[in-house]
Structures are given as structure tokens and as C-alpha cells.
Amino acid sequence: MSAVHLQDVRVWHRSDGRERTVVREAALTVKAGETFGLVGPSGCGKSSLLRVLAGLHREWSGEICLLGQTLLPGRRFEAGLRGKVQMVFQDPYASLHPRHRIGRALREPLLLAGEKRPDARVAELLAAVDLPAAVADRYPHQLSGGQRQRVAIAAALSLRPSLLLLDEPTSALDMSVQAGILNLLNRLKTEYDMTLLLVSHDADVIAHMCNRAVTLRDGHLEGVIGTGGDG
């Protein structure tokens, strides 16, 4: 089964009543369990495509199949799929609610999913991303950039996703912090048995992380690159 399958996908933004197409005729298949890269300069539409796959942007047409479920344009994800597809955003400062303590941010999705022992799971999640349990009492602004991104990853993991979308997860971070986050993602991918779809402008990061990758330029996907050691 493929984790992601796109066929003839067009994505557009609507502003002032006018449509602006940012991705056209996109077609790709991501196999379950691989790390797939999406490279391209800023403004090429790669983030928009990722937000479509995350269910955050609903203005698209074509054929999208995620984890065996077919999506419908303009519609919200079905409940079963929602927890299975999660995303980590570029700016860890912007992706955590500034007025929620870390503990609350992690607990809420767990409670909604009917988790019986949320506090134990929160501690477990923080441990999974190498953060001490004391972080649960903090606000995001009391953490460093790398710590915030770890929290964001923990939040994304809380619903045990099968597909993790990564939107430039390390481009706002220092080099050694980036190294830590990339190591963590590789470890968690095995532990949680996930498929990763990584968007980055940094070809080196893609080369380090991915089995295969495509380049997106001006809204067009260009050739699948196998980046050595295809697994």
C-alpha cells in the first residue's frame, strides 16, 4: 500500500476573488515506511502542497489518496484519518499555543481521542523526544527553539500517526540543534513505524534523510531522485 498517492493534483489560493495556481499536474507516490523528500526554493508551492496533504488547505482538485483513503476536495478529513496524518511546522515558536502550558497542549488531543491515562502518556511523549517531564509546566516562550520543536514533534506523535508531514522542520534552528532533531526524527520513524514526507529547501538535509525525493519548481514536480541507498 502506498502512503501517499497524488494524480494530476492542482492547488490554488484564492485572494480578492482571483485564483492563483501554485501547484499544477502534480503526481507522485510515496511508499509506506519510506522517507520522501520534497525540495525546492521558497515560494515554489511545496508548503501549499504539504498543507493540502495535512487537510489544512482545501482548495485543490485531482486525485489524492492518503493511507488508502481517498480525499475529497473542499472537505475536512474523516475522523479516522485525522489522527493518522500529522504535521510538524517550520517555526516552532508559531506552532505552539503561546498561552497553553506544554502539558495542556499535549494532553488535549489525547483526551479528545479518549485516552484513559493522559498524564502518563504526556510523560511518555516528552521522554520520547528526550525532554524532561518538568517541561510540561512550561510555556513555549520559556523553552529554546530546539526544545520547542521537540515539543511540536511530541504533539504530532500524540495520536500515533502513520504519516508525518515535516514542513522545513529544522530551517529555523542552529546546526547542532538541527542534527539533534534529524536524529530524533529518524529514531521516531522506526519506533512509531511512520512514513515521513519532508519538505526542505536544503538539498543536504534531504540527501541525509530521504530514500527518494522530488524537486518542485514553479509549481511543477520534476523527476523523482533516488538519493543513494534506496531502501
Binding site: R51, A54, G55, L56, A79, R82, G83, V85, Q86, M87, F89, Q90, D91, A94, S95, L96, H97, P98, R99, H100, E108, P109, L112, A113, A152, A155, A156, S158, L159
Partner: peptide
Amino acid sequence: RSDYLAAARMHGIYGVRLVFGHVLPM
């Protein structure tokens, strides 16, 4: 358009919960 409301939606938080739990505090 903020990322953290997007993240909340991705965690299945919608409607009243989103308005009063996430937007109201801001």
C-alpha cells in the same frame, strides 16, 4: 492563519473547543 490553530485542527480540535479553548485565551 496561525500555525498553532492549524496544529490544533490537525489534532481534531474544532468548533466550540477551538473557539473557547484556543482563540478565547488570545
